[in-house]
Every structure is written in C-alpha cells, then in structure tokens.
C-alpha cells in the first residue's frame, strides 16, 4: 500500500498539469473537465487497483470549475492532501469552490492586469525598434514567472494546508499593488508614445511688417503640452468606456470613422 501514497513529485507533476486545465474548456462546465483531468494521474496512483473509486472521484470533479490556471495548483495540492487524509468529499468540495473565486481574482489581477500589460508594452516598444528581443522577452518573461507561480503555489498548497490562504492573499496584494503602480506608469507613458495624432493644419499669418509667416497649428499644440492630441483622444476613449460604458465595437467603429473622416478633411494626419 505504501506505493499508493503520493510523493512530493506527484504534487509537482499535478501542479504542472495546470497547463492542461483548459484543454477541455467549454461553456457547459468551463474548466470542470480539465480539473478532473489534472488530478487524473494522481488519482490513478491513489486508487491503483480500484476502478470504482477512481470512477467516483473523477465524476465528482467533473462539475463546473473556473479559476486562474496559474494559481490552480494551490487548490489541487490542497485537494490531494485532504483526499489522502480522508477528508469527506463534501468538505473538499466546499474548500475547492471557496478558493476558486479568490484565486481567480488574485491570479487574473497579477497575470492579466499587471504582468501581461507590463511586458507587452515593453516588448512592443522593443519590437517597434525592430528588435526580435521584444516578442522573445515578452514570451520568456511571462512563462518563466507563471511557471514559477504554478510550482510555488502547488508546493504551498501541499505544505501548508488550508490556513495559508489568508496570509497568501495578503502578500499577493502587496506584490500586485506594486506591480500595478509600475504597470500604470509604463502604460500611460506608452499610451502617449504609441497613439499618434498630429494635425497638418497651417495658415498664413500677416505680420506687422508686411511679411507673411506660416503658422502650424501643431506647433501651437505642442507649446501647450507635448503629445496633447493623443492624450485628449485616449482620455475621450477612457471616458466613453468608464462613464458611457461603450462596447469595444462601438469604440473601434468610432475610431476608424473618425480617422478616415478627419484625414479626408485634412484635419489630422
């Protein structure tokens, strides 16, 4: 029976199977299939000669499940620890479902709202300068960090059990706070760099000494504040999203129509 006991390796292996969490994604039970599939090898080992128990365990875990796939190892590790300690299925399920939401929140805010935009903007600006390092850096940095997150959360779940979640989310909050400060700085900086709107309007002004001078509106705009037009336009879009709750389709259509119309009228270039 000793061989049926899960080793640390089994926990790490299950954690790495987080990559397969969405392999069966569907609108019916979201990651439910994937969750059962993630546990499969570990369950197979636990119930080596008992197909009935394996069948029951898999069926129990086919229900709806949806969380962040980089933080899910925390749940699966905890799940397996409890299973090995003969925790009742009902309790395991309630913990699994209770953790699903908070971990999705922490994970999404870290991966999607901090890391991805940060590395994407850095990568894009390197790519803009023709450097292949741009996409490479983005891809490698994202995956290295998220792989570490998977293994670490898996090991945390394994070692520390249920009472860790409170302190973990506290630490995550600090990290994600700092990351969003950096992220917001970089993103707003790049917004004014990448959104390019200039105006070609010029007019001829008569100077007092009968000379004529060509005045470019763009120079006047620059004197007020550099990159003013991109800032104003981004601000307008921000307002439409935040206050008017416009959908992205409307925004894209507005932008394309505005771009074509104003360029035909020679107001912007």
């Amino acid at each position: 029976m000793v061989s049926n006991k899960l080793q640390k390796n089994d926990y790490i292996k299950t954690s790495l199977r987080a990559y397969f969490l969405q392999n069966g994604f569907n609108y019916g039970n979201y990651q439910g299939l994937g969750y059962a599939n993630m546990l499969f090898p570990a369950l197979r080992k636990m119930y080596k000669d008992d197909d009935d128990q394996l069948q029951a365990a898999l069926k129990e875990n086919l229900e709806f499940f949806n969380t962040n796939l980089h933080f899910v190892p925390f749940i699966t590790s905890l799940h397996l620890v409890m299973l090995e300690n003969n925790t009742p299925a009902k309790e395991i399920r309630s913990i699994k479902m209770a953790l699903m939401g908070p971990l999705a929140g922490i994970g999404d805010s870290l991966a999607q709202f901090c890391l991805a935009p940060l590395f994407a903007t850095i990568g894009a600006s390197l790519a803009q300068d023709g450097m292949i390092m741009g996409p490479v850096l983005f891809f490698v940095a994202m995956n290295a960090i998220l792989l570490a997150v998977k293994v670490l959360t898996g090991l945390w779940g394994y070692k520390l059990g249920t009472n860790i979640i409170a302190s973990l989310s506290e630490k995550m909050e600090i990290i994600s706070n700092i990351a969003s400060m950096i992220g917001v700085t970089v993103i707003s900086g790049l917004a004014v760099n990448f959104v390019k709107i200039t105006t070609p309007i010029r007019y001829v002004a008569n100077m007092p000494d009968n000379q004529q001078k060509i005045v470019a509106i763009q120079d006047m705009v620059d004197a007020i504040a550099p990159k003013l037009l991109p800032v104003l336009f981004t601000g307008l879009i921000f307002y439409l999203i935040k206050v008017k709750k416009w959908s992205t389709y409307k925004l894209v259509i507005l932008t394309i129509v505005l771009g074509i119309a104003l360029s035909v009228l020679q107001l912007i270039a």
Binding site: A191, F194, K196, T255, G259, I268
Partner: peptide, 11 residues
Amino acid sequence: VSGKMLPAIGF
C-alpha cells in the same frame, strides 16, 4: 490614420 489611433482603445 485610424490604425495609429486604435492603440488608444487598448490603453
């Protein structure tokens, strides 16, 4: 011209 404005939506 629109293409240069579109990143504003993403940001």
